[in-house]
Amino acid sequence: MRMLPPASIHCVFADPPYNLQLQGQLRRPDESIVDGVDDDWDRFTDFAEYDHFTREWLTECRRLLRKDGTLWVIGTYHNIFRIGAILQDLGFWVLNDIVWRKSNPMPNFRGRRFTNAHETLIWAARGQDSRYRFNYQSMKTSNDDVQMRSDWFMPVCGGPERLRNQHGLKLHPTQKPEAMLHRVLLASTAPEDVVLDPFSGTGTTAVVAKRLRRHFIGIERHPAYVEAAWARLAKTRPLETDAMAVTPSRREAPRIAFGSLVESGALVAGTLLFDRQRRVSAVVGPDGSVSAGDLRGSIHKVGAELQNAPSCNGWTFWHFEREGKLVPIDVLRRP
């Protein structure tokens, strides 16, 4: 990470070591670990060592992120609270904590605890003043036109997606489902953005980034995981450019003055405007103002006064008739 230039990354997705060894993780009678990782990568001698490691890689992430970039980090109760505190100490601004509720979690074999059926993702901006990207409308559209919530219900990685070694065993114990990375990148990045995964594993982030036409950087030290990632990337084809369009948010709507629509004839002076229920009406003036009785002003000001509200988005409040139906004037500023 120290070899990369500062402010060069739009988004980081990190799936760091879970710190299982320090949590007295329960084991089966045959000494195999119940629900985690049992390798040298996850062996820290104490919490101070784990915290130092965490602070180092998060510091580098913050250096690499652009001012308006965001970071996603996933973990379990073993490590996510320590990570959250450290990233706040470093100046990151937490936007959401997402609960990944697993539809098929691994059972608790010894019956000494609740079945651990979820993991937590923290989504954070580089700083409090970051103008971070959130493709709100795309998330809403993909969720049957309902706001996307912060609890995500999806299965753990399985079936043909789960990579296995020559013995038929899981190649990587915590391989994440591609569906999760698809949602993460679709929500917080744009085509041609650069995505970094500092714990790349078998390359799930890179595979999804390539498919969605994002640039990617993956860092991984395990040779078998690197080999598997290269094989997956070789099979991955980017989506066609025409398929990359996402639903724009209102925040991204072009800034067009209402008066310019009147000037161009897109909405003729004298046109009657109504609210959606036809409770109130106003007349469009030649200067782009609207009038309702004694009230005259912008579409926003008049709409607010008619509702006795502090503010009003006139683009969505006012409608005009088209072929016998009411249509919001907002459609007139779309390409």
Rank of each mutant, 00 (worst) to 15 (best):
V208N: 05
A206W: 00
T202W: 01
L185W: 00
A187F: 09
L163E: 01
Y136L: 09
Q166M: 10
V194R: 04
R213Y: 08
E161L: 09
H172D: 04
M148S: 00
F199R: 05
I98Y: 11
F114M: 10
H182V: 02
L181Y: 05
Q175E: 09
A179T: 09
Q166K: 14
V156I: 04
H118R: 14
S200Y: 07
S103G: 11
W123Y: 13
R164T: 05
R221K: 14
I122H: 05
G201K: 02
S130H: 11
R149Y: 04
L95W: 14
R112E: 13
M106L: 10
E178W: 07
H222N: 06
M154C: 13
L171W: 05
Q137V: 04
M106Y: 15
L196H: 09
P173S: 06
L186N: 11
E161D: 09
K170G: 10
T120C: 15
L163K: 03
R162H: 13
K102R: 11
L181G: 04
H182N: 10
P177I: 00
T115L: 08
H222T: 03
L171Q: 00
Y132N: 08
P177T: 09
P191F: 11
E178P: 15
W152S: 06
V207E: 00
K102C: 05
P173L: 01
F199Q: 01
L186H: 15
T204V: 05
F153I: 04
H167L: 02
A179C: 08
K102D: 02
F134A: 07
V195H: 14
V99K: 04
M139T: 01
Y132L: 12
V184C: 14
D97Q: 10
A206V: 05
G218L: 03
G203M: 01
L186K: 14
R221T: 09
T202F: 02
V207T: 12
K102L: 02
F114R: 11
A190S: 15
T141P: 12
S150C: 05
V194Y: 06
F216R: 06
K176M: 01
F114Y: 15
R213E: 03
D129W: 06
G127M: 07
A124P: 15
M106Q: 13
M154E: 00
N116G: 11
N116Q: 14
V208F: 01
W152A: 04
A209T: 00
K102P: 11
P191A: 09
D144H: 14
L185M: 10
H215M: 04
P173M: 02
W100F: 10
D97T: 10
H182P: 12
V146Y: 11
I98N: 07
N143A: 07
K140W: 12
G158W: 02
T189Y: 05
D193I: 01
P160T: 07
E161F: 07
A209P: 02
A187Y: 13
P223Y: 07
P198A: 07
R101Q: 15
A190E: 12
